[in-house]
Simulated assay, not measured.
Amino acid sequence: MKKKVWLLSSLFTAALLTGCDLSGDKSPEFRAIEMTPRLEAAKNKALALCSGCHGPYGVGTADFNPNLACQKKMYMVKQLNDYRNGQRNNHIPMVNIAKMLTEEEVDAISTWYSLQRCSIDTL
């Protein structure tokens, strides 16, 4: 009887592990970003306006600065537009920066940050 339980347990464990990567290599794969002129302009604008707090590639420069890398594009568009139109006014520097951006720049910068260091698994 114990052999039967052990065999069933072993088969169940094997079934659970089927398809699991047990190689130990945990380095994520990242999507290649095709830098179009629109994304290049967005990157340059983000470097000029955003990188002081959010880092050059969207990783906050301090614990209280949020990461923008791999953030959902529509979330960032909404937040920037809320700053631009006064619905969100709790951070005056962000209000001022967002008001300097056109709708197209908001969209492009949000796209650029959303593509930064995105693991293929998170898409």
Rank of each mutant, 00 (worst) to 15 (best):
M1Q: 11
C118P: 02
M76S: 11
T102D: 08
A32L: 10
N65I: 05
P56G: 12
W6H: 05
S10F: 15
W112P: 04
L17T: 04
A98C: 06
D82S: 09
D21P: 02
T36C: 05
M1S: 09
G86R: 12
G58T: 11
M76G: 01
F30M: 13
K26R: 14
N81L: 10
F64I: 15
N67V: 03
M74G: 00
T18A: 13
I120T: 13
I92L: 14
Y75T: 15
T18L: 14
T102F: 08
M1V: 04
L22N: 00
F30S: 07
A46R: 01
S23H: 08
W112G: 05
D63Q: 09
A108D: 14
N90C: 05
K3I: 14
T18S: 13
D21W: 02
A62F: 09
C118R: 11
N96D: 07
C53K: 03
L101I: 06
S114Q: 03
A48N: 08
Q79N: 10
K73S: 02
K73R: 15
P66Q: 12
A62C: 03
E29H: 08
L47I: 12
L101G: 04
S119L: 09
P37S: 01
Y113L: 05
L101N: 04
V5G: 02
G24E: 06
A46K: 01
A48W: 08
N89V: 15
N81D: 11
T36W: 06
Y113C: 01
T61L: 11
Y57Q: 09
I33A: 05
N44L: 13
Y83F: 15
A48S: 07
A46I: 07
